[in-house]
């Protein structure tokens, strides 16, 4: 049993939220990308979060059978593409315009992305606070002897 294990939980949260921020940044950066290596416009990406049981430490598992499942981290299981149709804009002069003169723009809505950005930032900060709290607890425990 050590407080270092507590940091692992928050670390998984920080990592997952940062990957989510990366995804949002990609979406915003490519909000007007009409050409990709896969062909067609850029498709909005989203992350899928799943819980991740942190029970790898064998000794800890034996010692704390009654509290199994208490240490739940998080991980990004998948990065999925949004299947929503692209935004069609009439622009016959554009090199990627279809025969009817419409250009397929990415299905990225900047408002949605900004809301997601704020949520991800707040979730990240919450995990940082958990790390800080654990650090204060550790400092307090270390000051007992002296």
């Amino acid at each position: 049993m050590d407080i270092g294990g507590t940091f692992d939980i928050s670390a998984t949260g920080l990592r997952a939220e940062r990957l989510r921020l990366d995804t949002i940044a990609s979406n915003l950066a490519n909000a007007s990308t009409t050409r990709t290596p896969e062909g067609g416009p850029y498709k909005r990406r989203d992350v899928v979060f799943v819980t991740q049981a942190l029970e790898s430490d064998f000794a800890a598992t034996i010692e704390e059978m009654s509290e199994r499942g208490a240490r739940q981290g998080v991980k990004v299981s998948d990065v999925i593409e949004d299947t929503a149709p692209p935004r069609m804009v009439f622009d016959p002069g554009h090199p990627d315009a279809n025969p009817e003169g419409f250009v397929a723009y990415p299905n990225v809505n900047p408002v949605t992305e900004m809301v997601d950005l704020m949520t991800a930032t707040r979730a990240y900060e919450a995990n940082v606070q958990a790390v800080n709290a654990a650090k204060r607890m550790q400092d307090a425990a270390l000051s007992i002897g002296g």
Binding site: F49, V50, T51, A70, G73, A126, A130
Partner: peptide, 18 residues
């Protein structure tokens, strides 16, 4: 209290997990 912190940290890590 340390155990409880682990539980609360888990909750925070999974604040966006469906």
């Amino acid at each position: 209290h340390q155990r409880r912190h682990e539980v609360l940290a888990s909750n925070l890590a999974n604040v966006e997990t469906p």
